[in-house]
Design a protein around this nucleic acid. Structure first.
Lengths: 160, 160
DNA sequence: ATCAGTGCAAAGCTTTTGCATAGTG
DNA sequence: CACTATGCAAAAGCTTTGCACTGAT
C-alpha cells in the first residue's frame, strides 16, 4: 500500500470515520483531479469507469460526511445539482463558464473586505458567503458558442 | 376590474403571452408581496390559501415564462429549491438569514466594479453574477438561535 | 466480535411533461 | 374559431433512507 494511501487513511481517521474503500477513493479523486468541482454523478462515473464499483448512495453518504467534517464544501451554482470541492486553506470565489462548465477560482481581498462591511452595517453575523460570476470563458470554442447560452432561462447548461 | 389589473394584463401582453388568471395572480403576488423572494411551493400555498385554485404545474410554467421574458430572476441560494424575484431596475446582491430565511438585498458599486475587473483579467465575457452572504440577522430571536445553524452541513434550513 | 459502513431498492422532493379540456383574443 | 394555456397525473432527476449484509478495528 503506497504511503499516500496511508496518509489519506489517517486523514479520514482524524475526522472520526473508518478508512473504507469508498471513502479513500473519493478523497483520492478530489486530491488528484484536474477538475476541482465534482457532482455526485460525476464522481460515480469517474470511479466506475476506473473499475471501482461503488453505489451512488454510498457516494452521497460519503459526501455528506466529508462536508460535515469540513473536508469538502458544497456549492449549488445554477445547475440544480450540488457540486463539491476540497476545502483548502483560503476561501475563494468562483468564475463559471456557461458553455463548457469549467469552474475557475479566484480571491479578491478587497471584495472580501467590502462584503464584511455590508454585513456589519446591517447587524448580521456572517457565516459564509458565495460569489459566483457566470460568463463565457476565453476558450475559442466557447466564445464561438456564446449564443448557446442565451436561449433558455438566461442560464447554465441544466441537467434536468 | 381595477385599473391595476388592466396594467398588469398589458404587462403580460407586452411579453407576448395571454393575460390568464394564473399569470395575473402570480404577477400580482410578486408585486404586492412583502416577501420578495418566493419559491414555487410558496406561491402555490399563498394563492391556494387566498382561494385561488391553480395547479403547481401551471405555476412552474408561468415562472419559466416570466423568467424567459425577463420579468423574474431565478436564484438558487443554498436551499436546493429555486426562488424567484421580480426583476427590478438595478442588479443587487443578497444577504440571507440562516435562521429565519429572510432575504435582504443590497447594492455595492465598488464590489460590482471589482467583479468586472476579475472577469476581464481572465478573458471572460460576463453574463451574470450572484453574490450571496449567509449569516444570522439582527433579530433577537435569530441571534438567540445562532447554534441552530451549525449542526447540519454548514447550511441553511433545508426542505428536503 | 462488534459496530460502523455498504449495496440495493424504494421513497422523497422538486421540477417537467403528455394529453385532454377549458379559456383567451 | 383557432390556438394557447390549464389541470391532472405520470414521469424524470437528484438525493435520502430502511434494511439486511459486509467489512474495519
Amino acid at each position: 500500500m503506497p504511503k499516500s494511501r496511508h496518509l489519506q487513511a489517517d486523514h479520514i481517521h482524524a475526522i472520526g470515520l473508518k478508512a473504507t474503500v469508498p471513502r479513500l477513493k473519493v478523497l483520492e479523486l478530489f486530491k488528484d483531479a484536474s477538475r476541482h468541482h465534482l457532482s455526485a454523478e460525476e464522481i460515480y462515473r469517474s470511479l466506475t469507469s476506473d473499475g471501482s464499483e461503488m453505489s451512488l448512495a454510498t457516494i452521497y453518504r460519503v459526501l455528506i460526511q466529508f462536508e460535515q467534517a469540513g473536508l469538502l464544501v458544497r456549492h449549488h451554482f445554477e445547475s440544480g445539482k450540488a457540486v463539491f470541492e476540497l476545502k483548502q486553506g483560503e476561501h475563494h470565489d468562483h468564475l463559471i463558464c456557461l458553455v463548457c462548465g469549467r469552474v475557475e477560482e479566484f480571491c479578491d481581498d478587497e471584495i472580501e473586505r467590502l462584503q464584511h462591511a455590508v454585513v456589519e452595517a446591517r447587524g448580521y453575523r456572517l457565516h459564509e458567503h458565495a460569489l459566483a460570476l457566470y460568463g463565457v470563458c476565453a476558450a475559442p470554442e466557447c466564445q464561438a458558442r456564446q449564443d448557446a447560452v442565451l436561449p433558455r432561462r438566461g442560464g447554465a447548461p441544466r441537467g434536468r
